[in-house]
């Protein structure tokens, strides 16, 4: 095997040359700093692009209306991976929410406050997390508690909403 490693054949030279390392595009940092949820399709006719734009606007309006009516899950960062959501919230709101698993949909950040979106029993719910101690109940929240220098707020309308505990606590 050592011999095979040392002997450089023609194909090895070609591969070394043609698969060499390249520079990462500058915009990669922006993609990490402000993660993009979806990427636009590059193969699209003009008509398809127009139709897609109209559909996107219509969908955005519907989503906005739905969001205001239901407090629903329009999220800036969509992922069910606790590590990724935790990292994104930490990067964008400076809040470390010790997420573990379960029910996660994604997260929003707004004015230094994080909103962890999760889904239970077919309903979209959110756990609000703020760095300010003793923040008052907001957005219809009826549960608030402090932990690790952060205030957590939750709007519960059904016992199963408390499954939010499982977001941070194993077996919660």
């Amino acid at each position: 095997m050592v011999k095979a490693e040392l002997r450089k054949t023609g194909i090895e030279a070609v591969l070394e040359q043609r698969l060499a390392r390249v520079s990462a595009p500058e915009e990669l940092w922006d993609r990490v700093r402000y993660p993009r949820v979806e990427r636009p399709s590059v193969h699209m006719s003009v008509n398809a692009a127009r139709m897609s734009a109209c559909a996107t606007v219509a969908a955005a309006i519907m989503l906005l209306v739905w969001h205001f009516h239901t407090g629903g899950a329009a999220v800036q960062f969509r992922s069910s991976d606790p590590g990724m959501v935790r990292a994104w919230v930490q990067a964008n709101a400076g809040i470390d929410v010790p997420l573990h698993s379960g029910y996660l949909v994604g997260a929003n950040v707004n004015h230094g406050r994080a909103e962890i979106a999760y889904r239970v029993g077919g309903r979209d719910l959110s756990l609000l997390v703020s760095n300010s101690r003793g923040a008052s109940l907001k957005n219809g929240a009826n549960f608030a508690w402090a932990a690790g220098g952060q205030t957590y707020m939750l709007a519960c309308t059904a016992p199963e909403d408390l499954k939010a505990c499982a977001l941070c606590h194993l077996g919660g």
């Binding site: 993609r31 990490v32 993660p35 606790p82 590590g83 994104w88």
Partner: peptide, 15 residues
């Protein structure tokens, strides 16, 4: 590749 690189660094940050 951008998607994979982005996911890699987010995973790195998270873990």
């Amino acid at each position: 590749a951008m998607d994979i690189a982005q996911e890699t660094f987010l995973k790195l940050l998270g873990s």
